[in-house]
Simulated scan of single mutants.
Amino acid sequence: MKPSIEIEYCTGCRWLLRAAWTAQELLTTFEDELGSVTLKPSEVSGGFFVRADGTMLWDRKQRGGFPEMKELKQIIRDHIAPERDLGHSDKDA
Rank of each mutant, 00 (worst) to 15 (best):
A19H: 05
A19G: 04
A20Q: 13
A20Y: 12
A20M: 06
W21R: 14
W21Q: 12
W21T: 13
W21N: 13
T22C: 13
T22S: 11
T22V: 10
T22D: 00
T22Q: 10
T22L: 15
T22Y: 14
T22H: 09
T22K: 07
T22M: 15
T22N: 08
T22I: 13
A23I: 07
A23G: 10
A23E: 09
A23H: 01
A23Y: 00
A23M: 12
Q24D: 13
Q24H: 15
Q24M: 07
Q24S: 12
Q24E: 14
Q24F: 12
E25P: 00
E25V: 15
E25G: 07
L26R: 05
L26G: 07
L26K: 03
L27D: 02
L27K: 14
L27Y: 01
L27A: 06
L27R: 15
T28I: 08
T28E: 08
T28L: 06
T29Q: 14
T29V: 14
T29E: 12
F30W: 05
E31D: 10
E31S: 15
D32Y: 05
E33G: 05
E33A: 12
E33N: 09
E33Y: 10
E33C: 08
E33P: 09
E33S: 11
L34W: 06
L34P: 06
L34M: 11
G35Q: 02
G35V: 11
G35R: 03
G35I: 12
S36I: 00
S36M: 03
S36A: 15
V37L: 04
V37H: 02
V37S: 04
T38K: 14
T38L: 12
T38V: 15
T38W: 05
T38R: 13
T38Q: 09
L39T: 08
L39P: 10
L39S: 07
L39F: 11
L39H: 07
L39G: 05
L39V: 08
K40A: 13
K40I: 13
P41Q: 04
P41S: 03
P41K: 02
P41C: 04
P41I: 04
S42D: 03
S42Y: 08
S42A: 12
S42F: 09
E43M: 04
E43V: 11
E43K: 03
E43C: 06
E43H: 08
E43P: 01
V44F: 06
V44Y: 03
V44C: 02
S45D: 06
S45I: 15
S45G: 02
S45T: 15
S45R: 15
S45C: 10
G46N: 11
G46C: 12
G46I: 13
G46M: 09
G47P: 03
G47H: 07
F48H: 06
F48Y: 15
F48G: 01
F48L: 09
F48T: 08
F48I: 09
F49D: 01
F49E: 02
F49Q: 05
V50G: 00
V50D: 00
V50A: 00
V50R: 00
V50Y: 01
V50M: 01
R51D: 02
R51A: 06
A52C: 11
A52E: 04
A52Q: 06
A52L: 08
A52F: 03
A52M: 10
D53S: 10
D53Y: 06
D53F: 09
D53I: 11
D53M: 08
D53A: 07
G54H: 04
G54L: 10
G54N: 00
T55S: 09
T55F: 00
T55I: 13
T55P: 00
M56N: 02
M56V: 14
M56C: 09
